[in-house]
Amino acid sequence: MAQRRIGLTGGIASGKSTVGRLLAERGLPVLDADVYAREALAPGSSGARAVAKRYGEQVLAEGAGEPCEPLPALDRAALGRIVFSDAAELRWLEQLVHPLVRQRFAAELERLREAPVVVLMIPLLFEAGLDTLCSEIWLVDCDEDQQLQRLMGRDGLSADDARARLAAQWPLARKRALATVVLDNRGGPEALAPQVESALRAGAAPAAPSPPPA
């Protein structure tokens, strides 16, 4: 692969966005799966209509109208409470959203095909099988207790709700064995910048993702 494609992943609230900002500040294009997933469920989209049809008024934002109206706006917090408490519903939502996200990645990678380096920021990189798009994989790592506290503080979740979201992803321990680079975010954001610089220099030439250990 001539283009260097950095797959940036981690666990929820592990610090991916901070690393993504550091890379964007260095002029690298950052393709954000979370942005594409939000677009897939934007008001008026086929995804939003499918969700409104399945769950009805309980997932509609206040003032959004009935599910049959052309522009349903979703209450994402309400949708999250449903899917993170029911594995079958989470699978349904992923089967709806993941193909749309893949399409956006394909279109953006085609648009950026002449760029020497592209960053693909994908929380569910391994879970969704998108690691095949990448020439190397950077994992933003921290302790599970830190994830839990950061997630509760960031999103205003209870401990039980935060644990349910953590349980919906692969644990970081499983991802570490598959990463090309592990960025330690157990300290503060200021500790990430030198690690990012080092990883950029170390991978100046394109490389294939490291195979999992035997």
Results as ranks from 00 to 15, higher is better:
131 D>Y: 00
152 M>T: 07
205 A>Q: 14
210 S>D: 12
60 L>P: 09
31 L>S: 03
137 I>K: 09
117 V>H: 08
149 Q>D: 12
169 Q>N: 08
171 P>F: 06
161 D>P: 02
158 S>L: 02
64 A>Q: 04
195 Q>V: 04
190 E>K: 02
49 R>D: 05
34 D>C: 05
78 A>T: 09
181 V>M: 04
92 W>E: 12
80 G>I: 03
74 L>E: 05
23 L>R: 08
22 L>Y: 03
211 P>T: 11
64 A>K: 04
171 P>E: 05
159 A>G: 13
135 S>I: 09
192 L>V: 02
169 Q>F: 02
137 I>P: 00
47 G>L: 12
121 M>P: 01
58 Q>T: 15
87 A>P: 14
97 V>L: 02
178 L>T: 05
143 D>Y: 07
121 M>N: 15
134 C>I: 01
89 E>Y: 10
56 G>N: 06
15 G>N: 12
143 D>G: 14
42 A>R: 15
214 A>Q: 14
70 P>C: 00
9 T>R: 06
87 A>V: 11
44 G>V: 03
39 E>A: 15
136 E>S: 11
189 P>T: 08
184 D>T: 06
137 I>T: 12
76 R>C: 11
29 P>T: 13
59 V>A: 10
54 R>S: 07
97 V>M: 11
28 L>R: 05
98 H>S: 00
185 N>A: 15
167 A>G: 11
68 C>D: 13
146 Q>W: 04
133 L>Q: 10
196 V>T: 10
68 C>N: 12
18 T>S: 13
68 C>I: 08
85 S>M: 06
32 D>N: 15
80 G>Q: 01
158 S>I: 03
83 V>L: 06
181 V>G: 00
33 A>M: 03
186 R>K: 13
97 V>F: 04
